[in-house]
Amino acid sequence: MNLYLFDPMSLIAPDLGLVFWTTLIFVLFWTLASKFAFKPIGEAIKKRSDSIADALSAAEKAKDEIKLLQNDNENLLKQAREERAAMLKDAKEAKEAIIAEAQAKAAKMKDEAIGEIEKQKVTAIADVRSKLSQEVSKMALEIAEKVLEKELDSTKDHQNLVNSLVDKFKLN
């Protein structure tokens, strides 16, 4: 006795029409989705993950390069500092040498100048002395001459003459 109005076989017996349509729809979906969806999507995802991997490795490489550059920079800086120190040292030495040389030269020049001056002085004094003695002798002669010219005048006049001559000589 069948209590129910439904056909129990309909639930478990495959239906030919449905099998046909399921096969058709699924196989079409499989073919089209593979070609137009899964392939481009898979490729795009692969491309993206590759590009991300590339970018990461490039960044890693860049980091290493920067580290290398930094080391280089530090070395350069160190070198530059050393060079600067050396240059400063050299300059200082050069300065000192120049100063010392200049001082030595100046001292030498001074000595020479002093020597020259001394020499000139001696020469000048000698000159003056000889000239003065000539002058004095000449003056004495002149005075003597004048005295001799006015000899006959009074003693008083004689005295005055000598005085005036002496004054005149003094003024000279």
Binding site: D15, G17, L18, W21, T22, I25
Partner: peptide
Amino acid sequence: FIDFSITKNVFTMLLGV
């Protein structure tokens, strides 16, 4: 006879696709 109709289930499959 054979039933090749677009039934509820076939309709659902088409909608799903």
